[in-house]
Amino acid sequence: MTDTSTTNARQLSDLEVRAEKERVKRNWLLSMPAMILLLLGASGPLLIVLVYSFMTPGDYSGVIWTPTVKAWFQIFFTVDIFDDTVRLADAHLTIFGRSLRLSLLTTLLTLIFGLPTAYFIATRPGRQRTLWLFLITIPFWTNLLIRTFAILEVIRNEGLINNFLRWLGVIDEPIQILYTDTAVLIGMAYVYLPLMVLPLYAAIDRFDFRLVEAGYDLYANRWQVLRRVILPIVKPGIIAGSILVFVPSLGAYVTPRVLGGGKNMMIGNFIELQFGQGRNWPLGSSLSILLLLVVAVALLFYVRAANRGGSDE
């Protein structure tokens, strides 16, 4: 008998080549309609945005086809009308700073509330767990606008909180929460909380609790078990949840518009402004690409962390 031959390099027979080509062709043909739809309705137009970011704004809207990098310059700097000095665009930087700060705080806040919640759901027995999970998925799939409206009704001056506090006699005048950064933060944490809980739940659900038993067996106390055993193992879930909250927070539009009013804009609203009253499509386009790049970096970070953590996808 001969051993498995490895001497001559693998050469596909004509038949195999034909079968392989057939398979690849079939798979591409099946995927093609979806690809075309997404090219028309999602990916393709992004390229136009990229092109527009290097154009000159038109008088009313749109662009004039004169290439320039002015829009990219405008993101960070402004030129003084009178003496042509270049200064940092403070107004823009404030908006970026707010977007970043609120997104990070939202992520932190949802993590603080989400981790115990996910842990609680994952440690319920069988059928009870399905019920709790169902309770967390209802807000997940409920229209974001509706949930934002619901929180608006709670925090506005004549809303639930202020009325309750007045009824208690703690305050005479309503506390102004609405149209502040705090309102946007509360709102985003509220609407994005389920996005944090679900991946955390998935990670904790897979967690093998015999490891906790081993931890206690080796003299760890509850805090040590949490810090040294549970958290390191569910870390991929924590990263996934954080990215899932951070990315949409950064691009949030509805929540800051409803709860932040006109002044407390985030980058999403600022982009919209350039296509509306601002009439500066190139600036709006360059801002969009910038946002896209930041999100891409965050996702890349996530993919790397997930691969290291050995979690699927």
């Binding site: 001969t2 498995t4 031959s5 490895t6 390099a9 693998r10």
Partner: peptide
């Protein structure tokens, strides 16, 4: 019948 890619092939039938 050979499976696998060049360098990592398995000759299932010879």
């Amino acid at each position: 019948k050979v499976f696998g890619s060049p360098g990592n092939e398995l000759r299932a039938l010879d």
